[in-house]
Nucleic acid binder design. Structure first.
Lengths: 156, 156
DNA sequence: AGCGTTCATTTGACTCGTTCAAGATTACGG
DNA sequence: CCGTAATCTTGAACGAGTCAAATGAACGCT
């Protein structure tokens, strides 16, 4: 668990003012990776009941802009945030239950940045998302009682 | 330009009824890759002025569900669709203007599916997005007249 | 420590992409 | 040609996120 001072230093290093909502958001994200804005809001309110949703949006944007947190938004999901930044890791996403897991980049930072042909683009980041089923969902039948049409799968 | 018959066959092969909106959407997507729902709607209405936006949403969902088109939605962008499917290609996205370009998978299909550790996940697809600046945007200054704070960069 | 400026937060309305629901239409097998 | 089920039209609703104005708090300076 991070000390408040530690989080404070992180904020100051990013030239951001140290406020309760910001400390709370950082603390929440350290404990609960890949949280949605809503989940962050809920968790923050357990510590600071009075924070507005707008404050959380602003804080998340400020932290994202300075690189303190990273924003990810897989297909059909709302925005999620994580504090693990700068290490070029990627994500495993379960198509069924939506859980997200971290994986380190298999081949290191550099090869990840090289598409086969860059078409004149100056690439600064390669984002990789592995889609599949998590251990639990691949073990369990997709839909438990009613196995009607296997074609339809929830859009969100 | 694809013949109507060709598109018809594609629909029938997917066990979908052949309707004007569906043919129109497919035709539009073949000409205009990475189109947003709105752009598809606009282009479809040039051919069929009466289609409802709901029809386009339904058609895109049906086509996506059967695999005839692929849905992509980069960070902060709305959903986009493309007809190029089944070839495991990836995307280059410009952070500045948002254009999307296709790139073939550098290393082939198989290695793309292998994260360093799968944590029990059954991975069936690896999605790669290369972020950077397109040729035009990397040549031109990001903001032309007012070069105030270089930190701020548009969220969308 | 106190003060003022500037940045953060609250409050509340609002936009936009997308989905839901009910009824009318149309494609397709027989 | 008919009946049925899928598809489309119409219109309303929803939720995530944003905008804007006013209040409040953090920090640098003296």
């Amino acid at each position: 668990m991070p000390t408040t001072t530690e989080l404070e230093q992180a904020l100051r290093a990013a030239a951001l003012r140290v406020t309760r909502p910001r400390l709370a958001v950082l603390a929440v994200l350290r404990e609960h990776a890949h949280a949605t804005t809503d989940e962050v809001l809920g968790a923050v309110r357990e510590r600071l009941p009075e924070v507005s949703h707008q404050a959380v949006y602003d804080v998340l944007r400020a932290l994202t802009a300075t690189g303190l947190v990273r924003r990810i938004e897989p297909q059909g999901s709302v925005a999620r945030y994580e504090v693990r930044v700068g290490d070029n890791h990627h994500h495993l996403v379960c198509r069924s239950c939506g859980v997200i897991a971290d994986v380190d980049c298999a081949v290191g930072a550099a090869p990840c940045l090289a598409p086969s042909e860059d078409l004149g683009f100056v690439v600064d980041e390669a984002e990789v998302i592995y889609w599949g089923l998590c251990r639990a969902c691949s073990a369990a039948p997709t839909v438990l009682p009613t196995l009607d049409s296997p074609a339809e799968r929830g859009t969100r």
